[in-house]
Amino acid sequence: MTGLLWVTVPYVAFTSFLLGHIWRYRHDQFGWTTRSSQLYESHLLRWGSPLFHFGLLAVLGGHVLGIAIPASWTAAAGVSEQAYHLLSVSFGTLAGLATVAGLGILLYRRSTVPAVRKATTTIDKGMYLLLSAAIGTGMLNTVGSNLIGGGYDYRATVSPWFRSLFTIHPQPELMAGTPVSFQIHNLVVLALLGLWPYTRLVHVFSAPLGYLTRPYVVYRSRDANHPGARRYARAWEVSAPPSARR
């Protein structure tokens, strides 16, 4: 069971994440979009969306710090466990609150504004469900276990387990004794990762940072579109040779 949950499931999710993105990038450039609904409604979005996105970016940054960087490194850098804990919980809570508030506004908007509700697809709904669950359980872990409860040192169990997945020697046993709320959070996030490439979340990988450095106006030669250089096969047929037509 431990092996299934903490080795098989993550690898299945990663595979889906990776191959899904490659497949979609190669075959569905046209579908690769934020599918923004701002055209329908702007007022709620202007509060909810920045709160949510910036909050989530901070949360992601926190996760990278907490998971990718081993406790021994921060200790070596002279950051005590208490100091780390204080920092991560306070910043994590702030970022989490912004994210939750933003998500709340966005979900309210999505369910009450008729045009936005109409534009919500089934996969969107699944995505929202997983996203809300991931953020909800994450918030529970930060606030519930770490702030109110005694605190749980995930850097001794969850983080090394996650890192071990990227070595050839996954260590599922590290996850065995972790609190249930952490386990659920992990599973929900893994499910979200698995679903990711098939949702509009793909827009994350189009973050247009190149915009800051490129020239303002983009010129492109028509040759790229020329029938001779087309990426797709020609789907029409010349009905008769030109000579026969005259």
């Binding site: 450039q29 046209f30 690769w32 979009t33 934020t34 599918r35 923004s36 701002q38 055209l39 827009h203 189009s206 247009p208 190149g210 915009y211 490129r214 303002y216 106006v217 983009v218 010129y219 492109r220 030669s221 028509r222």
Partner: peptide, 29 residues
């Protein structure tokens, strides 16, 4: 074109027609 973060709106160098590459547009509006 200058405000498109993805560089999807381009001016054709042969005839100056301004087009949106539907494959590169990411919906940043």
């Amino acid at each position: 074109s200058a405000s498109c973060p993805s560089g999807a709106v381009y001016k054709r160098s042969e005839d100056g027609i301004v087009l949106v590459d539907q494959d590169r547009c990411r919906g940043w509006r």
